[in-house]
Structures are given as C-alpha cells and as structure tokens.
Amino acid sequence: MSPSADGRPIFVEIADQIADDILVGLYAEETQVPSTTELSVHYRINPATAGKALNRLVDEGIVYKRRGLGMFVVTGAPDALRARRRAAFTDEYVRPFLAEGARLGLTLDEIVELIRKDPS
C-alpha cells in the first residue's frame, strides 16, 4: 500500500478502503473491523498510520470503539456512507466526466446517448 496517484495520504486510503468494504456489506453492522495491528501487518504499513485510519472512521461516525474489544461498525453506517457518497457523486464523477466530454467536443445529448447505449 502506497500513497495513491491523487496524493491521498495512506491513512485516508486505508480508511476509504474499509468504508468501501462496509458499504458493500463485507463488514456488517455491529461486527468487528480489523485491529490496528491486523491492518498494519496486512497492508505493511506503520501501526500509527493504521491507527489514524481507524480514528478517521470513528470521527466520521462509521465505526466505534468497544472498550477492550476493538472497533465495531455503527448501526446505519452503510446508509450514512451511501448518502455521503451520493452527495459527493457530482463533484467526484459527473463534473470530471463532463469536462472530458467538453474537451472532446461532445454535446450533452451525445453524452446522454452514450450512457443509454452503454451495455453495462
């Protein structure tokens, strides 16, 4: 695991990865997520960095600490993540997508048509 091309720090990348896994249900609500040590050994990253990733998820209300037991997924976390990602969808996906379309001289109608025709 290394800093991504967009310059996100490693701890943000790890936090996003865990959030992705929660969003698709790999870690269900009220189940445990990996510990600092497990994350650091798995991703071969400094334990302090792994700890920062988990703290970020705590700050965002996605996981919470059960004293002496570890970190657990908050009930409602997948819905909260979905709502947040939808809010960011325009900035992160639609805008760059339209900007590339504009560079290529595609009209909005042509772009909509391409989306409609896409087999996936």
């Binding site: 800093p3 490693i10 050994v41 071969r44 990253i45 400094n46 334990p47």
Partner: peptide, 25 residues
C-alpha cells in the same frame, strides 16, 4: 511491521527505495 507492532522499538531506517518504504514510516 509485525515485529514492531508486537514489540515496539525505535527504528531508524535509511533507504533509496523511498516510495516502497514510505508506508512503514
């Protein structure tokens, strides 16, 4: 990482493979 996590210690590491080692630091 495993040794350090189980038995914390001060490690000073020099390297030219900086991007490979960066996540450890």
């Amino acid at each position: 990482v495993a040794e350090y996590a189980a038995h914390p210690r001060t490690v000073l590491l020099s390297t030219h493979l900086i991007d490979e080692a960066a996540p450890l630091l």
